[in-house]
Design a protein around this nucleic acid. Structure first.
Lengths: 419, 419
DNA sequence: CAGATTAAATTCAGTTGTCAAATTTATTTG
DNA sequence: CAAATAAATTTGACAACTGAATTTAATCTG
């Protein structure tokens, strides 16, 4: 059954407690039992040893040993107030464990236009500082980007009352073709030049380990760690903003394409010899659905001057459509039909159980939401569309930075447990 | 660099020895060291203990222990004739190990029109029997399908001089929406009815464990176990026949979509409100590229009577195009352009390092191969298309059955090593 | 309120899978 | 034939577990 949840919700998850994927607890990929147990505790916020034993599938004795080690190394703490949720209160009461939030800190940074943002996060996923910094739309040198990052670091450290050496890792996201594995920005609208080894440059400059990824992956990580995706084994995230981005989670893990650079949904072709895309190719989904495509049509059909400010023009277009302007409505309508094609293709190829529509542009969606879903259903086999849920989700300005922090958290956690 | 290898090659792999993915040897997913070592031996045909130690990453002592167990349980044998490949002949000569080909046998069956096929395979990947059985194009009941399978079993067992109880598992592939995990055929052009639990039905009837999968996945498994894909960590397979199929290998493993039913490349939309597909939807890639689409056009434009025999009509169309008929050429030309769109989308989304074009139809390809590749390059970012190789590959009639046997082999291997 | 009951957590002896180093085995070279 | 070389095996030690018995901390019952 198709299901559009249009309600914007801040956290997305039912349980406020914990962060990180909920179902990855019994995951074969996680290296050691110790790490599995640590992540199980973090995922649930707090949990008793008995439950860990059941979930992770190790004996009670092992849980005692391992948690004792974790407590000794100050990564985990016992919770004072013993809470018995419901159940009859007989027998020795369970003692819950929590991760020590202060054991490590990370910074999550999103570089973008028209603003950069940063959060500082502790090991429990709590935000300890938030910074937003305006940024011009010109392409910057790697050095200028470093300056921005330094500035964001300083401001956020001050706000969190932490010193630079307390930060274990910095997660950085930027738009464009960014390869997480190599740390190289093939191309980014933010960066002058090509094939910039931005991770190494930042690492060198800051003297702290850095992980980078592209913005669509950050958003997907944010959903996986803090949002609706926490409880899902597999789901896709589609963002509609200046471009169209996509992220995919398979088996509780972010899938980064066969070679770490796939998932360019925005540039899949939905029309042979179709509309011109800013990438220079024709018929890209983006060229029909993204902000710039709508604005381009608006300036042609609606006698709307191209002011250069895309957000402003989108707002005008939206207002006109709302007030009944047929031409404006038609522009949204066509975009919606192509969006349906894009979503149908995602279902046809990946068949995820959930697609999360995310990004600022989603707020215009109610204009064509119904039609998009109906259209989409006509473009997918019954068996598939029947069970795929579509959910839209509008976060605050800091999602991206939170996703970057999640990237950093998982990297830090991995290093914590590799002897 | 784009690279079209048009040469049909029977086996596809450079080394005749061994079967199964070559790079999966040090794979974290493989449950036990014992299984890893067994699979390493099988993958390489024969290999000395020293080399196993290096490849799998365990100590020489462990290799001795584990291989001793494998030899004791008759799964592995030492090779008599000591071969020292090249190297100076000093020191104790290595003793190579091989898997005992006769320890288990499997049957691989492909159900299809106009014929069904089956192979019997031993644990070393050797084909011990081949059977092909003609089949009408009507949709059959599950019982009729069972009869076919029984018939294929009997004939192939006779040919291989084996008895039924020597078969450990039967891998069965059929076209349509078939879910490997549940064993249910959602819909198949071969089966009357919907949601048929075909795996359980076959298992019941045959009294032998059965695994099922759809035909595109079988073909992909065949490439992974016996073909060009053996040496690749990730690749995609695209088949053009009556429909368009797709399979994807990520990290040496067949990816089956988030819920085991994705990868419907043939029904991704390449044109809004486009040509009518046999699935009832519009604008499907299949509706432009598959056999029936070309034949449909041919019967309209070329005054070619619709004889009902698609293969025959395709042949006529091909002959006409070869002899210079412009209308016929135009039909192939358009199909080629849309095929380019499909391949470009695969690259945009998955970015595999290799795409293998497979299936009978590939032999018509030289008509438009060059153009397809050029077109495709204009529809993918430079960074991607630069490094994606396109290879076409024409197998014999038994590929599908071989793929089904590979499915069975991996299932048998898994059960062999789970205590 | 003492003992029975219950359930969580801990202890501990035993198993398993692994490694590193020493040793044995099989072969070539001088 | 002894020295050199390299594969394979043996061995003792260790780390990660498990399962069963035991301890601990609470509630329930008469």
């Amino acid at each position: 059954m198709l299901n559009l949840t249009g309600t914007p919700n801040e956290a997305g998850a039912k349980n406020i407690e914990g962060c990180g994927p909920l179902n990855a607890i019994n995951d074969l990929r996680a290296a050691t039992t110790k790490q599995q147990i640590y992540e199980a505790i973090r995922a649930q916020g707090q949990v008793a040893r008995v439950d860990i034993s059941k979930q992770v599938g190790v004996s009670a004795g092992s849980v005692t040993t391992v948690t004792a080690e974790l407590i000794a190394s100050e990564l985990v703490r016992e919770v004072e107030e013993t809470d018995r949720d419901g159940e009859s209160g007989r027998g020795r009461p369970p003692v819950s464990l929590r991760v020590n939030a202060e054991s490590h800190f990370v910074v999550g940074i999103k570089l973008s236009t028209p603003y950069h943002s940063a959060v500082i996060m502790d090991m429990a996923g709590n935000i300890r500082a938030e910074v937003i910094l305006p940024c011009s739309t010109v392409r910057h040198s790697a050095e200028a980007i470093c300056d921005f990052v330094v500035e964001l670091m300083e401001q956020s450290l001050h706000e969190a009352k932490l010193s630079k050496n307390q930060i274990d890792l910095i997660g950085v996201g930027l738009p464009g073709f960014v390869d997480h594995h190599t740390g190289i920005a093939d191309w980014s609208p933010l960066l002058a030049g090509n094939n910039i080894p931005i991770r190494d440059i930042l690492q060198e400059r800051l003297g702290t380990p850095v992980e980078v990824d592209n913005d669509a992956n950050l958003l997907t990580l944010a959903e996986l760690w803090f949002g609706a995706g926490r409880a899902m084994r597999d789901f896709a995230v589609v963002t509609i903003e200046h471009g169209i981005g996509m992220g995919l989670v398979i088996d509780n893990q972010l899938y980064r394409g066969a070679r770490g650079m796939g998932m360019e949904l925005g540039h899949t072709k939905v029309q042979l010899d179709g509309a011109l895309c800013r990438c220079g190719q024709r018929g890209c989904l983006e060229a029909y659905v993204a902000d710039y495509a709508l604005v381009r049509e608006a300036s042609t059909a609606l006698d709307m001057p191209n002011s250069g400010d895309i957000s402003e023009m989108m707002e005008t277009l939206f207002t006109q459509a709302k007030s009944g302007n047929e031409a404006a409505r038609a522009i949204f309508h066509r975009a919606g039909r192509y969006l349906a094609v894009g979503l149908a293709n995602v279902i046809n190829l990946f068949d995820p159980s959930l697609i999360i529509l995310s990004g600022d542009r989603i707020r215009y969606d109610y204009l064509y939401a119904e039609e998009v879903l109906t259209d989409m259903a006509t473009m997918t086999p019954n068996a598939h569309s029947k069970s795929t849920k579509i959910q839209s989700h509008q976060w605050g300005d800091l999602v991206w930075a939170q996703g970057a922090a999640a990237l950093a958290l998982s990297a830090v956690t991995n290093t914590m447990f590799q002897s």
